[in-house]
Structures are given as structure tokens and as C-alpha cells.
Design a protein around this nucleic acid. Structure first.
Length: 423
DNA sequence: TCTGGGGTCCTAGGACCC
DNA sequence: TCTGGGGTCCTAGGACCC
């Protein structure tokens, strides 16, 4: 059996954990640049605020119902996530951290009659230790556990406790019949449209569909989903986090940028971000892509979007080399006279640091110097503060920076932001 | 005025190798 | 008039996930 633990309204719950005043009140968290709604408390959901909606459309509602609004605070969410995951690690022998707010637990060997009590204990412990409310779904495959988790959140039979256990021998077909096919894990909007053309509208319809038929019209993942719905486990727990195969750093600007210098500062910073992430997972990149685009939501203005991919002779994780490469890409695609809204850098073709093929034309000592330099670079920035040392092209002013007007303190990761309690 | 930022896997087709 | 069989790697595009 597998359990899927999912934090309820995770970002909203993180903000609320340190703001007891907001309990019972509608609360939302915004995307970067305070643009879209990306998390909502239950109260905010009831006001009809939708995930992904641009927030400026709802000014009136927000005011009328005194909705509490927060800019996203990723250091806080990241740290709270770690606390939740650490708690789960103490409660289960094997866990797979699936996303910032979700984890699968391997419950292999647990007697069926203990599952319900176990779910209650997990929910209670996580709540007590972290202040984050969770939902627990338990079933015989990961896909069914995801489904059970949805039921735990929304189905009237389960949402009082936010726990749903689908026991092995239990008849669950009636639950699957009421479960829309597009909500099944692995079925997105496009496949849902396709499946509905074949009369497959519910999870039950998909369960009784022929796996080979589904594979023909989708792919092998679709076939696997059918099997999983039938209780045949095809997707194992992945305990060890695997190294990323690509890393991307991209942001929309707080305001449009029309000169090369500012744009290049932003690109330099994104490139530096990629390099930092590369070193963190001990990988080097073979390919660096830079892209820029204007504001596509302003169709009346001149539009331009372009990217440039450059291959490195020797894979690298050095900040100055990644920046240099991203910069030469930028120079090739930059055009004067446009208002740019977004830029990004992506590194690709990652190889482990230990497996770098050196080029006999490049001197070994240069390579060695670079590594040493980067080690000191990270050491300084990790101890004293982010970007304390940086490449000059990253700039200092950061006029292109994000808008984050409603940012909460980093309660758990910055000494200066530690919560003060008056008694 | 204001519209996010990450990732993965699969498939098909083309270039290339022997 | 006739033209094999077996592979790999890379890329682009499309789907999916959070």
C-alpha cells in the first residue's frame, strides 16, 4: 500500500501558521511579481477566487471581503516543507518527496486493519509538529493513492478528517464512477478531451478501458495509468532524489525593460542562478540557452521573442563561464526598440562533475583554478550572504527586480525575521 | 497599471554509424 | 532494373506534473 500525504493549501497554510489572526479569514498567496493567485485558503476558494487568475481582476472582491494577501515567500515555504518531510521521515520507513508539499509513503507490509489509525496518527503528528494541515490518501497504487487524497480533500464522506483509505478488497467502483477522468493523475486537459470522445468520462470508465487501446491513443504512460487504476502497481517509490537533467532560471520583470544594460544584468543574474544550482547538485552543463520576450499580454505593442542555444566545449558550472556564454547568446538575439518583460537562462545536457571530459587544448591548471575559485565563491556567499561576491555584470541596482509588495518575514530562516511574541 | 516558474517523459524524424 | 538490417544520438514538439 501507498500513502500520499499532501499539505492543504500549502503556501496559504505556511503564511497562516505564523499569522493566527488570519485563521478563519480568506487568505491568498500571489505568484512572482504579485501577478497571479497561486494559493488560497478554503475561505478564499469559497469567494470564487481561482488558481492562476490574475489578481488585478478581483480588486473589488478582495477589498469587500478583507482578503489577506501575501507575496510568495519561497524561503519560508521551502523551510516549512523540510519540516513536514522530516516529520514524515520519522513516521514511515520509506518516503518519496514528490513535490514541495507532497510525499508518497511506502506502507508495504502494514496490516490492513492498522491503516486507518496510522493515517490519523500521521495527520495529527504533522499538524502538531509543524502547524500545517494535511490530507492523507491510502491505496494499493500511487495513482489510486493520489485519487484517495483528492477524495480526502473534497468528498463529503472523507473531508471532515481529510483522510481516505481505499482498502485492498473494498469495492471502490462507486467512488471511481463519480470521479472525473481529468482529475486522475496523469490525465491532463488534452487527454481528457480525447478520452471523452471515446465515452471515457470517469475514473471508472478509464479503469475498465483496454490498456492497449489507451496506449494506442496516448502513450505508454496512459497504459500504465489504466493498470494502476486496476490496482496493479506500476510506479515504484523513488527514494533517492535524482539529479536534474535541466535547470532553468527565468523571471518576469517588475516593469518592462528596454535597454540592453538592464536586460544583460538580469540575464547575468539568471545565469549565475543556474550556475549556483549546478554546483549544488555537482553537475556541469554542456548547453546554455538564453531567451528574451516582450509582454505578450499587450498585443498592441511590438512583439518579439527569441532564444539562442550555445554549446560549450567543456561542460562547466563556473559562474563566469555560464554568464559569459549566456551573454554572448543575448547579444545575438537582442534587438533595440522593444520593451522586454521576461528573460531566462536554461542549462541543459548536464553531466556529473566527476565525469567531465576535458579538452586537451585547454590547460588542466585553468580548470583546476576555476573549481577552486567557485568553491571559495560559494563558501563566502553561503556564510556571509547571497551574492556577497558576484560577477560585475550582475550589477547592483536590480531595477528589473520583482515586485513583492506583500512579502511576509522569513520567520524560520532569517535571524532578523524571528517572530516576537508579546505576553 | 497589473497575467508565475519550475520540471519530467514520450514520440517521431533525421543524421549518422557499422 | 536493381538498393539491407541493425543500431545510437539529437532535436523538436507535445503531453503531463507541481
Amino acid at each position: 500500500m501507498f500513502a500520499l500525504v499532501d499539505c492543504n493549501n500549502f503556501y496559504a497554510s505556511c503564511e497562516r501558521a505564523f499569522n493566527p489572526k488570519t485563521i478563519g479569514k480568506p487568505l491568498i498567496v500571489l505568484s512572482n511579481n504579485d501577478g497571479c493567485i497561486i494559493a488560497r485558503s478554503e475561505e478564499a476558494k469559497k469567494l470564487g477566487l481561482k488558481m492562476g487568475d490574475p489578481v488585478f481582476l478581483f480588486e473589488e472582491t478582495l477589498k469587500k471581503y478583507d482578503v489577506k494577501i501575501f507575496s510568495s515567500n519561497y524561503p519560508l515555504y521551502g523551510d516549512m516543507s523540510e519540516r513536514v518531510m522530516n516529520t514524515l521521515t520519522e513516521l514511515a520507513p520509506t518516503i518519496e518527496i514528490y513535490s514541495i508539499d507532497e510525499a508518497f509513503l511506502d506502507l508495504q507490509g502494514m496490516p490492513d486493519e492498522l491503516l486507518d489509525d496510522y493515517a490519523i496518527r500521521v495527520k495529527k503528528t504533522v499538524g502538531q509538529w509543524t502547524g500545517i494541515p494535511i490530507s492523507v490518501g491510502i491505496a494499493s497504487t500511487k495513482t489510486l493513492a493520489k485519487l484517495a487524497n483528492q477524495l480526502a480533500k473534497r468528498h463529503p464522506d472523507f473531508n471532515k478528517q481529510n483522510i481516505c483509505v481505499l482498502h485492498n478488497n473494498q469495492d471502490i467502483n462507486h467512488l471511481l464512477r463519480d470521479f472525473a477522468v481529468e482529475k486522475v493523475w496523469g490525465v491532463g486537459d488534452e487527454y481528457a478531451v480525447l478520452l471523452k470522445k471515446f465515452g471515457i468520462c470517469s475514473a471508472y470508465d478509464l479503469k475498465i478501458a483496454h490498456p492497449k487501446f489507451i496506449r494506442e491513443h496516448t502513450n505508454v504512460i496512459g497504459e500504465r495509468t489504466v493498470n494502476e487504476l486496476n490496482g496493479v502497481s506500476c510506479i515504484p517509490i523513488e527514494q533517492i532524489p535524482v539529479a536534474k537533467k535541466a535547470i532553468c532560471h527565468a523571471r518576469s520583470f517588475g516593469r518592462e525593460v528596454s535597454n540592453f544594460k538592464l536586460l544583460s544584468e538580469a540575464v547575468a543574474n539568471y545565469a549565475a542562478g543556474c550556475a549556483r544550482k549546478l554546483r549544488k547538485q555537482k553537475s556541469c552543463a554542456r548547453i546554455v540557452t538564453t531567451y528574451i520576450e516582450t509582454n505578450r499580454f499587450k498585443p498592441h505593442k511590438k512583439q518579439y521573442a527569441q532564444y539562442k542555444t550555445i554549446h560549450l566545449n567543456i561542460p562547466s558550472y563556473s559562474t563566469n563561464e555560464i554568464i559569459k556564454t549566456a551573454m554572448s547568446g543575448l547579444k545575438m538575439i537582442y534587438k533595440d526598440g522593444y520593451d522586454y518583460k521576461k528573460a531566462g537562462v536554461m542549462v541543459d545536457g548536464l553531466v556529473p562533475e566527476s565525469q567531465i571530459q576535458t579538452n586537451w587544448l585547454e590547460s588542466k591548471s585553468k580548470n583546476f583554478e576555476q573549481r577552486k575559485l567557485m568553491r571559495s565563491f560559494d563558501q563566502i556567499n553561503n556564510t556571509i550572504g547571497k551574492d556577497m561576491v558576484r560577477i560585475a555584470s550582475q550589477g547592483f541596482e536590480r531595477k528589473w527586480k520583482l515586485r513583492q509588495e506583500k512579502l511576509s518575514p522569513c520567520y524560520t530562516s532569517k535571524w532578523s525575521d524571528l517572530l516576537t511574541i508579546k505576553i
